[in-house]
Design a protein around this nucleic acid. Structure first.
Lengths: 251, 251
DNA sequence: AATCCATATTTGTATGATAATTCGACCAGA
DNA sequence: TCTGGTCGAATTATCATACAAATATGGATT
């Protein structure tokens, strides 16, 4: 009952992750996010996928289960798998967000991100100022120190990400954690685009320091202001992106 | 190679959804969220789960894939499945949020929700005022009309949820959509707890109307204010919850 | 026209087998 | 003693096959 011979396993891009079912999920996921299969559309059935990828049904089904769990699909007997409406997609899932970015105009994407960041990060900073534990404050501080010491370039992105994630953790509200993925994706990809992740190197460190100090002092109001201040810098970076930039690299 | 006889399939709570692998995922997911298996812990291996639930390995693996896709697990050869750190959990996934609520103090949960809602919803309303399409405005309006006509009781929850979700959609930012699940879960469960989902019936409709009017006029500032105004009402509801309320009912 | 029923299609579950990965222990040599 | 390699065992990963269950669809019956 396994359609197709097993001789074409390398017929699609070998995205990250060594598991076959993962690769299938990534391939199908990318197709959904890029609109090959629109919401409401019926996907090829399991037997078809088996032929297309030269994989067993077991593997195909595991890939489908993965996508179902992320809200992209729903399967029904005799019908097949149907693409779910967009509002059910777990867009803040790491994979889904990556697939989303891969098929989007970067400027548009970064605009959406900034819109959300400007809503959340000031309040996150404020909450962190109020709710941080000593340990969390130490994590923020260490990330900042690593930022300061890092040479401008690739290795300065990681501490920057850690800084923002540590801040997020210090807000101590589980319902906010999913945004970590968004922040991470935004900072990392912005760097890959601009190659200079800190457009105003002179202001970059001081502005982060402003947040750190406010959080250290437990001054929510100042933290909020400092976070917003930093974000307006990022806005300028976005604005300078080439309008017709290509799609982000896949996975 | 399938351990255990298939005679104890009903040994666990029959959660919603008719699929066996779904039930397994729910059962295991609940155990993770309730702390039976903490982050970093190694779960029973596939053969164990087969014995425990009397299911085939195929089914167990599909359940595990589901949980992996939601960020709760990660599987490695020779190691087994390990519970991921909390920050990787897709807490805004419908299932994960349900499992989370099922093993939490409701007051604590609602507090977290309100904290996030007070950050987001005013800004969502503001964005909706600016970005709404005519169609989206119609959806908001219709939800409001249904609210007004509904008798106070169970059937007034649904239009209320629709109102807030329509508002969210009208903000026109995909990265915000995951919060729909949170809003929905919050409103629905709050009703189940208080049995009177609108504590100030006199103010309930007018305050929603305030948001609608501001969004209709395209007045972002007024929309923001109206949304915040409504949320302070909800705060009062939360505050009145019995401090030692039992866990939320499961699934 | 409406109802019911058979059938075909598709996903759901079970079983058993083999492959691939890799931890951990043991061993050899410097 | 330390280093590195080798090998065995545990566990997930994949495959192949079979049957069960659900249900949309079209045809038969009334």
């Amino acid at each position: 009952m396994n359609p197709g011979n097993s001789s074409q396993k390398a017929s699609f891009a070998k995205s990250g992750g060594s598991n076959l079912h993962r690769k299938l999920a990534q391939s199908i996921g990318n197709q959904i996010l890029s609109g090959v299969y629109a919401p409401g559309a019926i996907l090829p059935n399991e037997a078809d996928w088996c032929r297309i990828y030269g994989a067993s049904r077991t593997t195909v089904r595991e890939a489908v289960k993965t996508l179902t769990a992320k809200g992209l699909l729903k399967s029904r007997t005799k019908i097949g798998s149907r693409v779910e409406p967009r509002e059910n997609w777990n867009i803040l899932d790491r994979d889904v967000l990556a697939w989303h970015m891969a098929s989007m105009n970067p400027q548009e994407f970064f605009f959406s991100v900034q819109e959300v960041r400007k809503i959340l990060e000031p309040e996150i900073a404020a909450l962190a100022a109020l709710n941080r534990t000593p340990q969390q404050l130490r994590a923020i501080t260490e990330a900042f120190e690593d930022m300061r010491q890092a040479k401008p370039g690739l290795n300065s992105v990681a501490p920057d990400v850690r800084f923002h994630l540590a801040l997020l953790a210090a807000a101590n509200n589980v319902l906010l954690t999913p945004f970590g993925i968004m922040i991470e994706a935004a900072l990392t990809n912005m760097f890959e685009f601009t190659s200079t992740h800190n457009p105003e190197p002179d202001m970059f460190i001081p502005k982060h320091e402003g947040i750190l100090k406010a959080v250290t002092r437990g001054n929510a109001k100042a933290a909020r202001k400092a976070a917003l201040n930093l974000l307006t810098d990022t806005d300028h970076t976005i604005a300078r992106l080439p309008a017709k930039a290509k799609k982000l690299k896949k996975a």
